[in-house]
Simulated scan of single mutants.
Amino acid sequence: MKIDMNVASLSGSTPLCFEINDLVIAGWAGRDKEAMEHHIRELEALGVKRPETTPTFYRVAANRLTTGGRIECNGSASSGEVETVIIAQGGKLYVGIGSDHTDREVETYGITVSKQMCDKPVGAEVWPFDEVAPHWDSLIIRSWLTADGKRSLYQEGTVAGLLDPADVIARYTQGADLPDGTAILGGTTPAIGGIRPGEVFECELEDPVLSRKLHLVYEIKELPISG
């Protein structure tokens, strides 16, 4: 699938149409074992079985990726989680912000299926990866959830608690370069106050070294479950 984005580099801004052939979710991609165990327990509390190995790479249909401002989900059991997104194109890597929006009820009996149930929103702007690679661990991911009309901080932490992209890619490709047309969501941080649904989800990737941010905001429309 094709997705129009904007590359915001230190030298300026350039539109670029990305050809996404493979969408991959890197689950349980924590470098900080304590934080990862916290997230595993969060999901266990919802009935999700702990993984046999970490990280686990879940394949999702590429057309689930979207820069739209609203997604539609069946029922009220879905929720988002902020993640960095690494995209390979033209022999280069780009980094953006996204949300692994997942149906938590389905996740209790099939994680792979649950990943396929919901669209995966991404911000329409990315940075060249080589501009942030030298100070990657200083990047900060945040999210806010609006539930019942109240907006609150939902997640916050540096990516130092997650596996480095080079490590994630090497594990996924068994040491090869990431193929062009591949997008990988690279893991998340624990939710403040527990995993829960809402009406609006906001994400942010902050680069404190180069003083810039990437943003993503989307609404969740709940569809009825009939039968």
Results as ranks from 00 to 15, higher is better:
R59F: 01
Y109I: 11
Q89P: 08
G90W: 00
E125L: 10
D130I: 13
T112W: 09
T66D: 03
P121E: 01
G75C: 08
L93V: 11
A124M: 15
G96Y: 00
S114V: 10
G98Q: 05
Y94H: 09
D100Q: 08
H101E: 09
D100E: 13
V132F: 05
R59C: 04
R104S: 00
E105V: 14
C73K: 12
K120W: 04
I87H: 06
S79Q: 14
S79T: 14
I111G: 05
E72N: 03
T67D: 02
Y94M: 03
C73P: 12
Q116M: 07
F129Y: 04
N63E: 13
G91P: 14
T67Q: 03
G68T: 07
R104M: 14
F57Y: 06
T66R: 04
E105H: 11
G96D: 00
A62T: 00
V132L: 09
D103I: 09
I87L: 15
V122K: 01
S99R: 14
V106M: 13
S138M: 01
N74L: 15
E105D: 10
P128Y: 05
E131G: 04
P134D: 02
T108Q: 13
F57V: 08
T108E: 13
E72Y: 03
V95R: 02
G80T: 11
P121R: 05
T66Y: 03
E83F: 02
A77G: 07
T102F: 04
E81F: 08
R104P: 03
A133W: 05
R104H: 14
A77S: 07
S76Q: 11
V60E: 00
E81N: 15
D130L: 09
G69T: 14
V82R: 07
Q116N: 09
R104Q: 09
D137R: 11
W136D: 01
D137I: 11
E107P: 09
T84D: 02
I71F: 04
F129I: 02
S78V: 12
R64V: 09
N74R: 15
W127G: 02
D119I: 12
F129D: 05
V122F: 10
I111P: 12
I86L: 09
T84E: 00
P134E: 04
G123H: 04
I111Q: 08
G90H: 06
R70M: 10
I71V: 10
Y58N: 14
I111R: 07
S99W: 15
R70N: 12
Q116P: 08
Y109E: 12
G68A: 14
G80I: 01
N74A: 10
V95E: 07
D119F: 12
A77T: 08
P134W: 02
I86S: 00
P128A: 07
D103E: 07
E131R: 00
E105P: 08
Y94D: 06
S79C: 15
V122S: 04
E105W: 11
K92N: 07
K115W: 06
T67S: 05
A62K: 06
E105Q: 13
K115S: 06
R70A: 13
I111A: 13
P134G: 01
A124E: 11
A61N: 10
